[in-house]
Structures are given as structure tokens and as C-alpha cells.
Write a protein that binds this DNA or RNA. Structure first.
Lengths: 202, 202
DNA sequence: ACAGGTACTGTCGAAAAGAACAGTGTCCTT
DNA sequence: AAGGACACTGTTCTTTTCGACAGTACCTGT
């Protein structure tokens, strides 16, 4: 499945998707030709056969408007690993840490996350990040002051708001019961940046 | 929209939904008749006209398979409507309220949500629900005490924790700046139950 | 040079599908 | 008892739609 499409084929596929979204039905050969600017409906027919051969659509024989979009043509999904308890000494995304994986559609978050991390503890509760939440993290080793980051200090992975001073970095919790942690900027390893959150209420 | 359907009309509507879900296209009059066990395709035609009159489907004239599902009922399996500002007097999922739609994979939340609602205000911030968050809501007109619900009071839609007393209901905010609202249990319309949350950090 | 894929135009007949008309019977309300 | 909505059967006619055939042109790899 999912051979690569030519430019024209991709346009045709987008056109079909748009048509279905607007009208609730698939276009006929003639309508597709009209939309794409073809003079002949057979051009549309040829494209459809190509799309079928490559596994993007299914054509129902002798059925009018029998163009069925298949998964490959629908929302391309990324399976992202869910990282649970992070074992000391291992990279955060090491297989040992992966709890399971969850399909996360592209476009759900404006910044594409690299992995999901299960939050432990309520040190960020005032920022709306609760114990057990999944946070979407984009892997990055740099961050700007004010961003919520996933950071590692001495093999401990924490989620905090980053404040950068001159030569030092402070990890600010969002909970009065916790104290800020200040370390030299060189002792801090940024693992990623918080780009979104998923909570599953029971 | 949404006149009440007769039993038979409801069956026809479900049948169409099923067919579209299976084949990606709407049934013809003949196919619908066959599925429903009608001897005549005109029976199907009549039902379709009734469904159109009541606002459940749109029939595209002289187009084969030109049955377009209108109700929020037909959002593709994993694509959920995002409800933004709710207009007074309209059902919460009315098309007028839909901002856009977002693909939400099955299994992302343990309870399958019906729609997503964009949160306005921070009255639930201590429950980790912030202004601008998308909450996943399962449509339901009943809820248990202690659940976070989407409720409607006098055309206002709010998200609060529900506390049920004897004969009365209290909507508890999770923010000290807001006061609980107590109403008679009969004045309260439960729209749905909070089943999850999606936040897109920028 | 030539085969093979892609990207079209143009035409035609046959099958699929919609629409309209003419009925029948059952409920329910007035 | 009469009228109207509902739920069908059965038929005919017209339009829509598909699919197949015939042909042109432009690339690309061999």
C-alpha cells in the first residue's frame, strides 16, 4: 500500500477529498474532469485507476460514484510512543520506557510532537497539567525562557517552566508546595518542549 | 432541524449511515429498498423525501447516490466536530456552532467522545481545565454526582463539576473566584459528560 | 531508437439510477 | 365519517454514469 503519488495524482486525490467533504458524495468521472479542468472524462478515469492501483482508493465496479477513500488517503496518522516511567541512565525514548503507542493525527497540535510523556506528580497543577496526563513533547535540546520543558537533572526527568537568567537556569513548578530549582545552565539537559496535552478522564 | 423521526424513518437513517460507513458511498433507492426489505424502490424514495423534509439528509437532485447526511450524526468515525461559541437556542452540536473538525483516533479516550468543546473562561482551572482547551464530551442527558459535566442553564453552556443533592443540583466551579450555582434538578439540562481533554500549547 | 508509464482528448453503447405517476392499506385526529 | 400522514407495491420513462475503445503527446530509462 501507499506507493508514492505523482503530483497530478495527488491533486486528483485532494480534489476528491474536497468534493466528498463538500457534498457528502464522491464525484463522477465527469465531475472530476470538470473540477480538474480535463476535457475528457477518461482522463479522470485513468487517474482513478492509478489511485486504485496504488491503494489510495477503492473503485466499486459499475456503481455510480463508487469511489471509496481508503485509510492511506485519509488522515495520515503518526503513531507516537507513550513514555511512562523513565529509567535512570536511558535515553527518554528508549524502548524500555515505552508504555504503549497511540495514534496521534498530524495537525492535532500545531507543533508536531515527537513522543508523549505520562506525567507523574502534580508539581505543574496550576498550569493545568495533572498527575496521569499525557503531555505531547517535541524533542529539542534548546528552549526559550518561559516555555514549559521536559528536563533532566541527574537522571531525573521533570516537567517545569523554564526561566533563563544570566548563566543559570531555573525550573519553576506551578504549585506552591514545590520550590523552584536553580542550576547552572550547563548542568541542565533539555529533553523537549511541551507542545500539548491529552487527558483521559475516567 | 431535527423534527422527530418515525420508527421506520430512524431505521432507514441508520441503514444509510451503515451503508456509507461500509462502502464510502450512499445507497441508491434500489439498494436501500433491498436492505430494508422493500419490494419497491419508491418506498425508499418516499422515506428519503421525508428525511429531507425533516432536515436529516440533503438530496442532490438527479445525482446518483446523492444522499448527503446533514446531522452531526455522520461525522466520520474518528473525526469529531469542534464546538466553539454556542449560539443561544441551538442544539449544542448544530452545524452553526461547529468551528472545524479534528481527527480523534478511537481509543485515545477510554470513553468515546461525541464532540469537542472549546473552553471559555478559567472557572475550572483547579481541575486542570484552562481557557482555550478542547474538552472531549460524550453526549448524555444524565450524569452522576461528582462528574464534570457540560450543562445548560438558560441558554448558557457551562462546564462544572456536578453535585446532586435531594431535589437540587449544584454546579461546582474549580476556582475560588467563582461561586457554586444551585438550581432545581428540573431546571438543569445536562448536555454531556467530560471524558477527556486536548490542549494545544503554542 | 524504442518500449513503457503518465497524461490527456473524443466517442459510444449499455447499465445504473432517479423521478414521476397510479394505486392500496393502516393508523390517527378531527 | 372524512381527511391526512405514513408506509408501502408496481410500472414507465429519462437522465446519469460507467467502461471500453481509439488515438495523441510527452517524458524517462535502456
Amino acid at each position: 500500500m501507499s506507493d508514492t503519488l505523482t503530483f497530478r495524482q495527488q491533486q486528483v486525490l485532494d480534489c476528491i477529498r474536497q468534493f466528498i467533504s463538500d457534498t457528502g458524495m464522491a464525484p463522477t468521472r465527469a465531475e472530476l474532469a470538470e473540477l480538474m479542468g480535463f476535457q475528457s472524462k477518461n482522463a479522470a478515469s485513468d487517474h482513478l485507476r492509478a489511485l486504485e492501483r496504488k491503494g489510495y482508493v477503492r473503485l466499486h465496479n459499475d456503481r455510480s460514484r463508487g469511489i471509496q477513500m481508503l485509510d492511506a488517503a485519509l488522515w495520515p496518522e503518526d503513531e507516537l510512543p507513550v513514555v511512562g516511567k523513565v529509567a535512570a541512565g536511558l535515553p527518554i525514548e528508549a524502548i524500555e520506557n515505552v508504555e504503549r503507542s497511540v495514534p496521534v493525527p498530524q495537525g492535532m497540535f500545531r507543533q508536531r510532537p515527537t513522543y508523549l510523556l505520562r506525567v507523574q506528580g502534580d508539581s505543574m497543577k496550576d498550569a493545568g497539567i495533572l498527575d496521569g496526563d499525557l503531555i505531547a513533547v517535541r524533542k529539542s535540546n534548546m528552549a526559550r525562557s518561559g516555555q514549559i520543558v521536559v528536563a533532566r537533572i541527574d537522571d531525573d526527568v521533570t516537567v517545569k517552566t523554564l526561566k533563563l537568567g544570566n548563566g543559570s537556569a531555573t525550573l519553576m513548578p506551578a504549585n506552591d508546595d514545590y520550590a523552584p530549582i536553580t542550576v547552572g545552565a550547563d548542568q541542565l539537559v533539555i529533553e523537549g518542549i511541551f507542545v500539548g496535552l491529552i487527558r483521559d478522564a475516567v
